[in-house]
Computed example of a mutant assay.
Amino acid sequence: MDKSNKIIVGISIGDINGIGLEVILKTFEDKRMLEFCTPILFGSSKVISFHKKALQLNINVHGIPSADKVVHGKINLVNTWKEDVKVTMGEVTKDGGKYAMKSLAATVSALKNKEVDFLLTAPINKENIQSKDFNFPGHTEYLEANFSGKSLMILMTDELRIGLITGHIPIAKVTETITPELIEEKVNTMYHSLQQDFNISKPKIAVLGLNPHCGDKGVMGKEDEEIIKPTINKIKETGKLVFGPYAADGFFGSKTYQQFDGVLATYHDQGLAPFKALSFGNGVNFTAGLDIVRTSPDHGTGYDIAGKNKANPDSFKEALFTGLKIYKNRKEYSELKANALKTK
């Protein structure tokens, strides 16, 4: 493979006191990974050296002055800050959030400048990262503010893709947030993503109900009958294969999800609780709907095991391979679409 054609992945290192750097370094400890892509980490050589020593990892990281000076065949590092930073493994600190944000901002800047091809994010702490530069519930909302499109958070494995109609909002606000317009937007985003990012020409999507038993015809809430069901029927008229609403307990209990290419949950834990019960440690978080590709592992900062050499890199590896596959699929989709327009 021509090294100049290798996909360059920009990696933000996440909270410096968590397991982000551990799963990153363990992933690229296998030199064969460099045959698939060229990684650029945005962080600090001193912080990385601290983690390497604590974890007894023997892995070479190659410093470069900027992302446009990338060296293929190596793990590249752009030193995003020069000052000394105290690393306190497993602790929630102000610096943990401050430097996670510096890494994320630098990686996003490189993505905007087309110096990297897609974004792979290590976990942040949503509390200590809050600042004037990051006033968002999470990565997804931050990226939506920085790139074009309407985001859709999708947690996925090879067998299951769950998107969220409402994401990081309080449960008390879910009912008032779910509108026909929002449901249509999220269905359309998932439908397009399944075509563009996963090569599924005629996707089949399931929508979960909001209330227990989908409201039992209004006995336990009217939203399913008055909002969700009519909206699904309206979308069906456009030719899209969209079905529901389905009661979430039976849907997952009977493995009905296996009959669909994508599933839309009405709120965060309705989708993520069963997903993580079925797939935790092997899943990937993918931000669909934007004009860039971003993936991440399905776990958090892992403070309880940080620095103990116990973190499993499997989810991070899956996030890397998923990002590579989606990036290639999207590029191929764009080329096919462009060629189709030329022939008209």
Rank of each mutant, 00 (worst) to 15 (best):
H268F: 06
V263G: 04
N233K: 14
A247Y: 13
Y99L: 12
I169S: 11
T256C: 07
L264N: 11
T88V: 14
L210I: 03
G307P: 09
A145K: 10
A288I: 05
G63H: 09
A105E: 15
L182S: 02
D304M: 05
Y267I: 11
K328A: 06
V187S: 10
K276A: 07
V85M: 00
G10W: 09
D298S: 06
M101Q: 13
K342F: 08
T295I: 01
T343K: 14
A338W: 01
K98G: 09
N339Y: 07
N113G: 01
H62A: 09
K255S: 15
I16D: 07
S4M: 10
R294K: 08
F286I: 02
N282K: 15
Q258N: 11
I11Y: 06
E185F: 02
N312I: 12
T295E: 01
I183Y: 04
T107M: 15
R330N: 00
G289F: 02
T93A: 07
L160A: 12
T238C: 07
G96Q: 13
K204I: 08
E226T: 14
M33G: 07
I292L: 00
S44E: 01
K240W: 07
T343H: 12
K6P: 02
G302A: 09
H139F: 04
E144Q: 15
H51Y: 00
E22P: 03
L264H: 09
H62K: 12
L264T: 10
T38N: 01
G239K: 08
N17I: 09
N113Q: 15
A172V: 14
K310W: 09
V78H: 07
I154S: 04
D304E: 13
H268R: 04
I178S: 03
G10Y: 08
N285P: 09
K229L: 15
K3V: 12
T287C: 12
F316D: 11
A277Y: 14
C214A: 15
V263A: 04
M101A: 10
T88D: 14
H62W: 09
M190P: 06
F286Y: 15
E176P: 02
I7K: 05
P180S: 08
P313I: 07
E335G: 00
S151Y: 13
I235N: 11
L143A: 05
I7L: 10
S148Y: 10
T343C: 11
K204N: 13
L182T: 06
Q56T: 11
A106M: 01
S254R: 13
A277V: 14
V219K: 13
I305L: 02
F280Q: 08
L241N: 15
N199I: 11
N312S: 12
R161Y: 04
D224H: 05
G323A: 05
M1C: 11
D249R: 01
V242A: 05
R32L: 10
I16W: 05
K331D: 12
G300L: 08
K74V: 10
I227N: 03
S12Q: 05
D269S: 06
R294A: 03
T231Q: 05
S49M: 01
E332G: 02
N146E: 14
K86F: 02
D30K: 14
P180M: 02
F147N: 06
